[in-house]
Design a binder for these strands. Sequence first.
DNA 1: TGCTTGACCGACG
DNA 2: ACGTCGGCCAAGC
Length: 111
Amino acid sequence: MKIHESCAAIWKATKKIPRGRVATYGQIAREAGFPNHPRLAGYSLKHIPDNMKVPWHRVINAQGKLSFPVDSEHYALQKNLLEAEGVLFLRGKVDLVRYGWRSKSDAPILD
DNA sequence: TGCTTGACCGACG
DNA sequence: ACGTCGGCCAAGC
């Protein structure tokens, strides 16, 4: 399939998310130069070529939840990958204030 | 062309 | 804290 410019931009933005942090679809879309296109981020992440490494698991929705059915393989995989990076889940949600990535002032995780 | 589909978001009750 | 609803707009058919 053809690789679109928009997808490449989303992938690029996604790669900037540091380990142990998460970003929302809308945030990534903005970062890639597509404000008001959160769904484009979802589309792009769904079509990542196998060969290129993109930390797609660090992208979650604005509610701090994973955008997959809780009983799906994808859900389990993404949750495992995040937990392996130290991202904590509480009641099926990630605390965005704590783990959310801020491209500007990269405020750390404080207790 | 035109219509449907989203790995979404924010507001509202 | 949940579900619903309307808005959003590129992709894909």
